[in-house]
Write a protein that binds this DNA or RNA. Structure first.
Length: 131
DNA sequence: CGCTTGACCGGAA
DNA sequence: ATTCCGGCCAAGC
């Protein structure tokens, strides 16, 4: 799946989509988290990738196929990035049971841990208990 | 061709 | 808590 083929933009996008498809209903990921999970394009300076990877993930989401749960990708602050369609995104997430507080979600509770760690999202009860 | 703009993020004021 | 700034890739015009 991940190889050292040319840093094709399309290939990068598809890796992003592939990852997002694995995010379970009721959980979210951040742009930066996805970028971090993917290997930096071969000829790219890792530092550069670290700085801009999240943006490219955003670009990938802007062009995602219909079968990708794009609504589960939010920014590192737990908020929905400002753009047309943001309202729709929030609506979809709330339908999945995600609770917004002051326009943001608690990433400690809802953030996806990665492939192979799709446990139940921690419920607010636990979060409160932990403080 | 060159210029503009963009679903981001972390550290510094 | 909030705002500002640097990072410098691609697609579209």
């Amino acid at each position: 799946m991940i190889d050292t083929s040319p840093p094709n933009k399309q290939a990068f996008y598809e890796q992003v989509w592939s990852l997002v498809r694995q995010v379970p209903r009721g959980q979210v990921v951040t742009y930066g988290q996805i970028a971090q999970m993917l290997p930096p394009p071969v000829e790219m300076d890792p530092q550069t990738y670290k700085a801009f990877g999240s943006r490219w993930v955003g670009s990938a989401m802007a062009a995602c196929p219909p079968d990708v749960p794009w609504q589960r990708v939010i920014n590192a602050q737990g908020k929905i990035s400002d753009r047309s369609g943001a309202q729709r995104q929030r609506q979809l997430l709330e339908q999945e049971g995600i609770v917004f507080v002051k326009d943001k979600v608690d990433l400690k509770v809802y953030q996806w841990r990665g492939p192979g760690r799709e446990d139940e999202p921690r419920q607010a009860e636990l979060g409160i208990a932990l403080e």
